[in-house]
Amino acid sequence: MLSKRIIPCLDVKDGRTVKGVNFVDLRDAGDPVELAAQYAEQGADELVFLDITATHERRKTMIEMVKSVARQLNIPFTIGGGITEIADAEALLNAGADKISINSAAVRNPQLIEELAKAFGVQFVVLAVDTKHIDGKNMVHLNGGRLITELETEVWIKQAENLGAGEILLTSMDHDGTKAGFDCGLLGSVNQMINIPIIASGGAGSMDHFTEVFQKANVDAALAASVFHYGEILIPDLKRELKRNKIPVRI
């Protein structure tokens, strides 16, 4: 049986992890490699690194970081942020990334999904979607929720699946940062509609929220950042709790 995955997400700027991370035994909380290895040791099933660097030096720094992570890490990881063309993706693949996630570049140029899937296989292409509830509809947003698009979330995800996206990372901007739980309603209905894995994101605040999103929305994976980084939820405890609730996990 396939396990449900638990995925910590790390924000990276100029090759360093940002947002407070307070693992007590970390020597350098800003070192993505050490942090990644620690998460793997704790039982994370996969990691997502989101590059939020704005400078044009971004690509080079990121490639070096990806190589360092790939040398150390014995679990899969995804790189997102600033990927706009095949060459960006290829460099990341060759540096050892297992998957890449694309967001605004795909909205601007949906063919990018198809080109990436053809070049590297659907398993390499994660489509990240930030969604917000507006006037009774779920609308795709860009720039961390600041910019609304004309795309309806469900329509866009279905189109992306048809173009060759291998996985969907769906973040509810209404729930993100609230710690009030995932958007199980939307995640469940999107999940019903597609035949590729879906990662739930936005709203994790307690272990119960993870149980709930797996039970109610039957998503394939759940992603969170701060609850893991601040040590509010420890992955081994979370896995035990999920197992107790009869959710298949890797322990």
Partner: peptide, 14 residues
Amino acid sequence: KLLNIKIPHMGWNA
């Protein structure tokens, strides 16, 4: 996919 599974098979499996 008629087996009611998602494709690709992606993740950790016993």
